[in-house]
């Protein structure tokens, strides 16, 4: 497994002792890896927010489409 891959999977599956040592040692000497580790965490948080934020100024649904759906709801309720 590529070291950078561990950045992602370690949040879900715990790394083994050997992997943890390998990971930490590698990162101590790899500036880009350390920067990616932080970027990856930032992307994580940004994605979680992005996925849960409702868009502003969105257009309402067409009245015709609304009527159609409402009719279907009524028919399915019975």
């Amino acid at each position: 497994m590529r070291i950078t891959e561990m950045v992602e999977s370690k949040e879900d599956t715990e790394l083994s002792f050997t992997e943890r040592i390998k990971y930490r040692t590698h990162l101590a000497f790899c500036k880009t890896c350390r920067s990616y580790e932080k970027q990856s965490a930032l992307i994580d948080r940004a994605l979680s927010r992005l996925m849960s934020s409702t868009p502003k100024n969105s257009e309402p649904m067409d009245d015709a489409a609304k009527k159609k759906i409402l009719d279907k709801i009524k028919r399915n309720e019975n």
Binding site: T54, P55, S58, E59, P60, M61, K66, I69
Partner: peptide
């Protein structure tokens, strides 16, 4: 429905 539609869109 408008909120749901906005999100789906």
């Amino acid at each position: 429905s408008d909120d749901l539609y906005g999100w789906a869109y």
